[in-house]
């Protein structure tokens, strides 16, 4: 009945590095982009959504690893979706209750975490094959990768677009208003992706061909 084959889990450091750089959900896999562009007009908003995704990713990965032996394999995808929906709803309610000010700005995008391809693909690709502890670290790495991506983009856009970081004015003018405007989000992500590719080239590695949408076709 258990069709799942177990493979030895990679070491923790690999799991975290993979999430942060090699398979960074935003800059590499180009998954979960909607909020990455939408809420990163300031570090504060990026941080809020990053933390929400981080928590949901870790909890969902762990939940999937916990129940992988008791669910009927045929309905595992709907069950995964429901698990994510539960954690997202809980996150949504907690944030709305205890952080009303920030929630007002990112509320819709917190709800949309449920449609994030990255979360379910980690559950399906990793948690189904591994135990709770490696699944935790895998979720941790991927979530952290997303969080860092959000912070990086948020800092870049807030600094250049508004001349401030976390609301503290650094310079008294707006160096490049464009990056904070709707269109600027796309430019920022494009530039950071190019930067990742450049780092890869410097390290002597071939950057990924960049077809996009790594998880969309399964």
């Amino acid at each position: 009945m258990n069709i799942v084959t177990r493979t030895a889990p990679p070491p923790i450091s690999t799991l975290i590095m993979r999430g942060l750089f090699d398979e960074n959900p935003v800059f590499r896999l180009a998954l979960s982009l909607c909020p990455a562009v939408a809420v990163t007009t300031s570090v504060k908003n990026g941080l809020m959504l990053g933390v929400a995704v981080f928590v949901v990713q870790v909890l969902s990965s762990v939940s999937a690893a916990l129940i992988k032996n008791i669910i009927i394999p045929k309905i595992r995808i709907p069950v995964f979706t429901i698990i994510i929906a539960i954690w997202v709803s809980i996150m949504d309610m907690v944030l709305a209750a205890f952080f009303p000010a920030v929630y007002g700005e990112v509320g819709l995008y917190v709800k949309l975490i449920v449609a994030f391809a990255i979360i379910i693909s980690r559950m399906e690709l990793f948690s189904m094959k591994h135990d709770v502890v490696p699944s935790f670290w895998d979720g941790f790495g991927m979530g952290l990768g997303f969080l860092v991506a959000m912070l990086l983009t948020g800092a870049f856009r807030e600094l250049l677009g508004n001349g401030s970081i976390l609301g503290f004015q650094i310079v008294d003018f707006k160096p490049l208003l464009l990056v904070i405007l709707p269109a600027g989000g796309f430019f920022t992500i494009g530039l950071i992706m190019a930067l990742f590719n450049w780092i890869d080239l410097k390290r002597g590695k071939e950057p990924p061909g960049g077809t996009g949408c790594g998880g969309c076709h399964g």
Binding site: A183, F186, M193, A194, N197, G212
Partner: peptide, 22 residues
């Protein structure tokens, strides 16, 4: 340019479209 191939340039294009939609 090599570093912009694939997704990065797609994003830049998308930004240009977004600007025109303004």
């Amino acid at each position: 340019p090599r570093v912009f191939q694939g997704l990065p340039v797609a994003f830049i294009l998308c930004g240009l479209f977004a600007m025109s939609f303004l």
